[in-house]
Amino acid sequence: MAQEAARRFAMVAGEASGDLLAGLLLDGLQARWPGVPAVGIGGPQMLARGFRSWWPQEKLAVRGYVEVLRHYPEIAGIRRQLKARLLEEGAEIFIGVDAPDFNLDLEAGLRERGMKTAHFVCPSIWAWRPERVHKLRAAADHVLCIFPFEPALLAKNGIPASYVGHPVANVIPMMPDRVAARTALGLPLDAPVVALLPGSRRSELRYLARRFFDAAALMQQAQPALRFVLPTLPSLRAEIDRMLVASGMQGRVQVLEGRSHAALAACDVTLIASGTATLEAALFKRPMVIAYNMNAMSWALMRRKQLQPWVGLPNILCGDFVVPELIQEAATPPALAEATLAWLASPDKVHALQQRFDALHAELQRDTPTLCADAIQKVLEG
């Protein structure tokens, strides 16, 4: 018990999706080692479990090459200070949760100084930037993988790894209750509902939100009965409200602080930014239109390193364009509106898609908190 009491876990989750994953990881760690403190950088899900965040998570929530360069001095400064503090105050293991651009260098530096390290979520080396496998091998004693094909891929590169399932697959029910979600959100049971998810970063809002709102206006012109819900972070609420006013959609979009799962459960279709949220939408068995737009230079650099024809996780995991993707210049408001409304007019296609998503959900369901704790215990004992 004395040895366990002396333990301290250090973690960094750099964005909202990582915060959700890290919260479930903490469930497993706290069940295995009750009362062991966890510190670093995290968001509301982690804070609710007693995590102590030394910096606001929003400081790290930047995406795209150009955007990161703009914020690089501050982000690099946080990483240096965090590394120094962890080495000074000690931690038995550091677990980087996603955010590879921030976490892998930090993990490698800590590992060089004798701290055990793990990385939760294998970087998408199977989708783009395969050279990251070398950095991952230097950074992590063990990788916790959320997709079943990843451990074998990492083993070929000499990296110990465990498949722990996708944590969100156990949070989202196999049969979401649309009626209960609509009742909770005050939405009518008989109206078609579109969930708008333009992203959880300010940089994403800058490039996507107005397009989504203009698309929503076109959809409502075509179908006046449509209702719109938009979940967002409290820190982004003022910016969302300003954009709604500018687009003429204020009062016509129900803005929710948090509650993205309620929005996905309640909706008939979602217009959604590419990212982890698209997998959540798939697990809610909701048809979607995946969109993304970013700085043109960032996109040009990213596209050259893309290994697969798909951008959205549901399409990558299904190995097919099961849902439409409208990226960069293709993500115009008319195209977004047309593709979203097409799902509402195609119940047979929706049913077939839901069957694909049922199979995907079953494949991703595992006892993730326990499997994570098992893997971390092996690292600690090794």
Results as ranks from 00 to 15, higher is better:
residue 2 A to S: 15
residue 7 R to V: 05
residue 8 R to C: 12
residue 13 A to Q: 09
residue 15 E to H: 02
residue 19 D to N: 09
residue 19 D to R: 04
residue 22 A to E: 04
residue 24 L to C: 12
residue 24 L to A: 12
residue 25 L to K: 01
residue 28 G to E: 13
residue 29 L to S: 08
residue 34 P to Q: 00
residue 43 G to K: 09
residue 44 P to W: 05
residue 45 Q to D: 11
residue 47 L to Q: 12
residue 55 W to I: 07
residue 56 P to L: 08
residue 58 E to F: 01
residue 67 E to F: 07
residue 74 E to T: 14
residue 75 I to C: 09
residue 77 G to C: 08
residue 79 R to M: 10
residue 82 L to D: 07
residue 88 E to F: 03
residue 89 E to K: 06
residue 89 E to G: 03
residue 90 G to W: 01
residue 90 G to H: 00
residue 92 E to C: 12
residue 92 E to W: 13
residue 95 I to F: 05
residue 98 D to R: 03
residue 104 L to G: 06
residue 107 E to Y: 08
residue 108 A to C: 13
residue 111 R to H: 00
residue 112 E to L: 11
residue 112 E to D: 14
residue 120 F to C: 15
residue 123 P to N: 07
residue 125 I to M: 04
residue 126 W to Q: 02
residue 126 W to S: 05
residue 133 V to W: 04
residue 133 V to A: 03
residue 136 L to C: 09
residue 136 L to H: 09
residue 137 R to C: 07
residue 139 A to M: 11
residue 142 H to E: 12
residue 143 V to F: 09
residue 143 V to Q: 10
residue 145 C to V: 00
residue 145 C to P: 06
residue 151 P to W: 10
residue 152 A to S: 12
residue 155 A to T: 14
residue 156 K to C: 00
residue 156 K to T: 12
residue 157 N to K: 15
residue 158 G to S: 06
residue 160 P to S: 10
residue 175 M to D: 14
residue 176 P to M: 03
residue 183 T to N: 13
residue 184 A to Q: 14
residue 187 L to N: 08
residue 194 V to H: 01
residue 197 L to N: 05
residue 199 G to H: 09
residue 199 G to Q: 07
residue 206 R to F: 11
residue 206 R to E: 15
residue 207 Y to S: 10
residue 210 R to M: 15
residue 214 D to C: 09
residue 214 D to K: 12
residue 222 A to W: 02
residue 224 P to W: 10
residue 228 F to A: 01
residue 237 R to M: 09
residue 243 M to H: 14
residue 244 L to C: 04
residue 246 A to I: 11
residue 248 G to D: 03
residue 251 G to L: 05
residue 255 V to W: 02
residue 261 H to L: 15
residue 263 A to V: 07
residue 265 A to T: 08
residue 269 V to M: 09
residue 270 T to D: 00
residue 271 L to T: 04
residue 274 S to W: 02
residue 278 T to L: 08
residue 282 A to T: 00
residue 283 L to S: 10
residue 285 K to C: 11
residue 286 R to I: 06
residue 287 P to W: 00
residue 291 A to R: 06
residue 293 N to H: 14
residue 296 A to V: 14
residue 298 S to R: 07
residue 299 W to F: 14
residue 299 W to N: 09
residue 308 Q to F: 11
residue 310 W to A: 11
residue 310 W to V: 10
residue 310 W to C: 04
residue 311 V to D: 01
residue 312 G to D: 03
residue 312 G to P: 09
residue 313 L to K: 07
residue 320 D to A: 15
residue 322 V to C: 10
residue 328 Q to D: 01
residue 328 Q to L: 02
residue 333 P to S: 06
residue 334 P to M: 03
residue 337 A to E: 02
residue 342 A to D: 00
residue 343 W to I: 01
residue 347 P to H: 00
residue 351 H to D: 13
residue 354 Q to W: 05
residue 357 F to W: 00
residue 367 D to F: 10
residue 370 T to G: 13
residue 372 C to M: 12
residue 378 K to H: 14
residue 379 V to I: 08
residue 379 V to M: 04
residue 380 L to N: 00
